[in-house]
């Protein structure tokens, strides 16, 4: 009997305060809509940035006279380094083959194979590339580098490219994270404010209820349910709009153009689930908490 009573009270309040209720609902709708567009955009951007960062690699050249046991030993050393995610071995023959295909005339002229065995290493975190280089070939006092294994000839990363890639993608990622954070905070404040306004208009009513002997939760439940309804309606409408846009605009585009190495974005069902839960939670918590001030009678 109680939940039914509270629900009836919530519906009555919505009906009797149609304009503030509509404002709160519209706020939820707009916010969810913006977040729903922004979250995949942020993900796509950071995904693209990460893909670029994946291209940060270093090459470990072995001496041309390295034997198989040297190769095995160096591989073990590289694999035991925790900052390295993967190690790819390119034998001198394999390297020779690819290079000759690329430039047959020059290699014909050379006759023999001048290329060394190479390990191509991908760091777990692209920012660690310089540290990995220092670990494999520590800087000597004189300014040159000494390698940690006698079979290694040189460790090289394309320093200029690497630094540029790291700087640019770093800025992009931080900017996106900041924007996402700001948008999240702005949404919460906007919804909370709208709710507070509609509550403020009804603070006298709350005062009267308290004076008649209503407990805090007896007064609060209808407001919380009202928030749930507002969040649910606003959220569902926004998601319907998002779905329309996705089906009408984004999906055909993705199919036709196969977006540049389409980075992983969040699944649509998961996205709308998250948005709906967030809308309802913010809206109902907002109502329940904002009421606290007016309950102190």
């Amino acid at each position: 009997m109680k939940p039914v009573f509270f629900l009836r009270e919530a519906l009555r309040a919505l009906k009797r305060n149609a304009i503030p209720s509509f404002a709160a609902m519209a706020t939820v709708l707009v916010t969810v809509l913006v977040l729903g567009v922004f979250i995949p955009v942020v993900q796509a951007t950071t995904g693209a940035a990460n893909e670029v960062r994946g291209k940060v690699i270093a090459d470990v050249y072995l001496k041309t006279d390295a034997q198989q046991k040297d190769v095995d030993r160096v591989e073990r050393v590289l694999k035991s380094e925790p900052m390295i995610k993967s190690v790819e071995f390119i034998s001198k023959d394999a390297a020779y083959k690819t290079e000759r295909e690329r430039n047959p005339k020059a290699y014909e002229l050379l006759g023999s194979n001048p290329l060394p065995d190479t390990f191509r290493i991908t760091p777990g975190n692209p920012d660690d590339i310089a540290k990995i280089k220092d670990a494999l070939a520590p800087e000597a006092a004189g300014g040159g580098r000494t390698v940690i294994d006698p079979a290694i000839d040189e460790v090289r990363n394309r320093e200029e490219d690497t630094n540029k890639i790291l700087a640019v993608t770093g800025v992009v990622k931080i900017t996106m994270a900041l924007l996402a954070g700001l948008l999240g905070v702005a949404s919460m404040l906007l919804i909370a404010n709208t709710i507070r306004l509609s509550l403020y208009a009804r603070r006298r009513e709350v005062e009267v209820m308290k004076l008649v002997g209503a407990t805090d939760w007896f007064i609060r439940w209808p407001f919380v349910l009202e928030g749930v309804i507002v969040g649910l309606v606003g959220g569902v409408l926004a998601i319907a709009l998002l779905a329309v846009v996705k089906i009408a605009v984004v999906d055909p585009l993705a199919a036709d153009f196969a977006l540049i190495a389409a980075p992983d974005t969040i699944d649509f069902p998961l996205l709308i689930g998250l948005l709906l839960v967030a809308a309802v939670a913010v809206s109902s918590l907002g109502s329940g908490l904002s009421l606290r001030k007016f309950l102190r009678v």
């Binding site: 308290k210 004076l211 008649v212 002997g213 209503a214 407990t215 805090d216 007896f218």
Partner: peptide
């Protein structure tokens, strides 16, 4: 928390 019950 008991004030509402008193007021009744």
């Amino acid at each position: 928390p008991r004030v509402p019950y008193y007021r009744r």
